[in-house]
């Protein structure tokens, strides 16, 4: 009788799970965080390169945008699966697609940020004898920062979500808990995995937002009166 009751009772969260599986949960969070940070970091570096190309050579902007948009359209499950024959059920098979998915978001925002630098500011910089390299790093990059920060925030939030999918190739941090719960029709790990994934996304988003505000103090001041 008591066994039947136990089977029928499948609450959203069984709290003792936290105690019993604490090590597993912590490991999943850490792995989730690692996959996210590494993927976005690689994606950011690649995006910066692509954006530099697009900004330096106008003709390259269209093809680069088309290519990154094409990558973005590939279903994530398919992309993870495609890489397994080459890299096995490894971290690489997870990171490559995750990084590629960020390209469209980050590259587009970097280009938009530089495009938004007012022409008169650029003209003034040139007119005062600023070298192009100095202009890019001391004037254009800081002014593009709000756009780049926005791109990073979107990329991080979407990557945190996508990392859970990587669980199907044996990676995926919190995705493993979700998959585990799904397989066993056991709500607790599913709920914990999903909720922690959301909290992780919010926390990272908030962190970058905060860092971004610290980095762009001029953008948060009231406007002067005419």
């Amino acid at each position: 009788m008591s066994a039947v009751v136990a089977q029928a009772s499948n609450p959203i969260v069984r709290w003792e799970y936290f105690v019993d599986e604490w090590d597993q949960i912590l490991e999943a969070v850490v792995q989730h965080l690692e996959l996210t940070v590494i993927s976005v970091a690689i994606g950011f570096v690649l995006s910066a390169g692509l954006a530099a190309l697009a900004l330096r050579f106008g003709w390259a902007a269209g093809p680069i945008n088309g290519f990154t948009a094409f990558l973005y359209t590939i279903p994530s499950v398919a992309l993870f699966a495609i890489l397994v024959p080459y890299f096995g059920f490894s971290r690489v098979s997870a990171i490559v697609p995750l990084a590629l998915y960020t390209l469209l978001i980050i590259e587009t925002n970097i280009v938009a940020g530089f495009a938004a630098v007012p022409a008169d500011v650029r003209d003034a910089a040139d007119g005062m004898g600023m070298s192009p390299v100095r202009r890019v790093f001391t004037v254009e990059l800081p002014l593009a920062m709000p756009y780049i920060i926005t791109g990073l925030r979107i990329a991080v939030v979407s990557t945190v979500g996508l990392v859970t999918v990587a669980a199907i190739i044996g990676q995926g941090g919190l995705g493993r808990l979700i998959l585990d719960g799904l397989r066993r029709t056991f709500w607790t790990p599913m709920t914990i995995g999903a909720v922690l994934s959301i909290l992780l996304a919010l926390a990272l988003d908030g962190l970058i937002y905060w860092a971004g505000r610290r980095a762009t103090p001029w953008a948060n001041r009231p406007k002067g009166t005419a």
Partner: peptide, 19 residues
């Protein structure tokens, strides 16, 4: 660059660095 640093340049939109 040297030439330009020796010539003051003022434009209509001012072009101050907002940051």
């Amino acid at each position: 660059a040297e030439l330009r640093r020796d010539i003051g340049y003022v434009i209509q939109q001012v072009g101050l660095f907002p940051h």
